[in-house]
Computed example of a mutant assay.
Amino acid sequence: MNPPGSRPGITKNHHPNRSAQPKIHSKYLREDKQVRDCIDAYVHGRIWNSDSKGSGAEGIERVGIRRKTDSLPVETHTVSPAVPIKSHGRGIEQLRKNVQQNLSDRIGRVHITLTEIAKPYGEPNIPAKYIALQLKNRVAFRRTMKKAIEPARKNGRKGIKIQIAGRPNGAEIARVERAREGRVPLQTLRAQTDHRYYPARTIYGVLGTKVWILKGGVKMLNLFR
């Protein structure tokens, strides 16, 4: 279950901050995916060419896109220990040009801003990527899940749940392994629960990694404003 999928308008806002006619809605979705894939590939390539290779907590946490009539503002949330874009004076400009080339000219000028995340393990995307990287390097899955849970709890999260499905450690029969600490309600709409899925492609096959993190309870949004 993806908890954020049932909470837009209740405790969360919609990620695409735009409105579109049904005929062009699919086009906007494809363009948004192109922007996210381009940014993720660019940052991932810079990380693996820098000294922060293999640190685990790195890369993109999320990309926010706001569409306007003549421009496309993009807010990229990255992890502070590994932001190699800022190490080069023309890093952001080069990233903007790469994104602009993959989009049509009718979108307008692309504006990219970087926002560093001080506590990366408080967000579910970073632990999911860390677990996938460790599984790819053939690290024991139980040890990996335990190491991913500890920093999330230290960052003040109420609970975390991890699930790995596939053939962990090369087992002959596929199974599902879970680890949890604290409470992680999935059906309570007032609970601010985030979820991420990230696949780990190993020599034994693909291992699906899912992470749920409870950040706390929040007040429900005003649906009639």
Score class of each variant (00 low, 15 high):
Gly89Glu: 15
Gly89Cys: 04
Gly89Asp: 13
Gly89Pro: 10
Arg90Trp: 09
Gly91Ala: 12
Glu93Cys: 10
Glu93Thr: 14
Glu93Gly: 12
Gln94Asn: 12
Gln94Val: 12
Gln94Leu: 14
Gln94Cys: 11
Leu95Lys: 08
Leu95Ile: 10
Leu95Cys: 09
Arg96Phe: 06
Arg96Thr: 15
Arg96Tyr: 05
Lys97Gly: 13
Lys97Ile: 13
Lys97Trp: 07
Asn98Gln: 15
Asn98Gly: 10
Asn98Arg: 10
Asn98Cys: 13
Val99Lys: 11
Gln100Arg: 10
Gln100Trp: 05
Gln100Asn: 10
Gln101Ala: 15
Gln101Val: 14
Gln101Cys: 13
Asn102Phe: 09
Leu103Tyr: 08
Leu103Asp: 13
Leu103Gly: 14
Ser104Glu: 13
Ser104Leu: 08
Asp105Cys: 06
Asp105Trp: 06
Asp105Arg: 13
Arg106Gln: 09
Arg106Leu: 05
Ile107Ala: 07
Ile107Lys: 01
Ile107Ser: 07
Gly108Ala: 08
Arg109Glu: 09
Val110Pro: 05
His111Met: 03
His111Gly: 06
Ile112His: 03
Ile112Leu: 06
Ile112Glu: 03
Ile112Ala: 01
Ile112Lys: 00
Ile112Arg: 02
Thr113Asn: 09
Thr113Trp: 04
Thr113Lys: 05
Thr113Glu: 14
Leu114Asn: 01
Leu114Ala: 00
Leu114Lys: 02
Thr115Leu: 04
Thr115Gln: 02
Thr115Lys: 12
Glu116Gln: 03
Glu116Met: 00
Glu116Thr: 04
Ile117Asn: 01
Ile117Met: 01
Ile117Pro: 00
Ala118Gln: 05
Ala118Glu: 11
Ala118Lys: 09
Lys119Asp: 08
Lys119Tyr: 06
Lys119Trp: 02
Pro120Tyr: 03
Tyr121Gln: 02
Tyr121Lys: 00
Tyr121Gly: 05
Tyr121Ile: 05
Gly122Asn: 03
Glu123Lys: 09
Glu123Asn: 06
Glu123Arg: 06
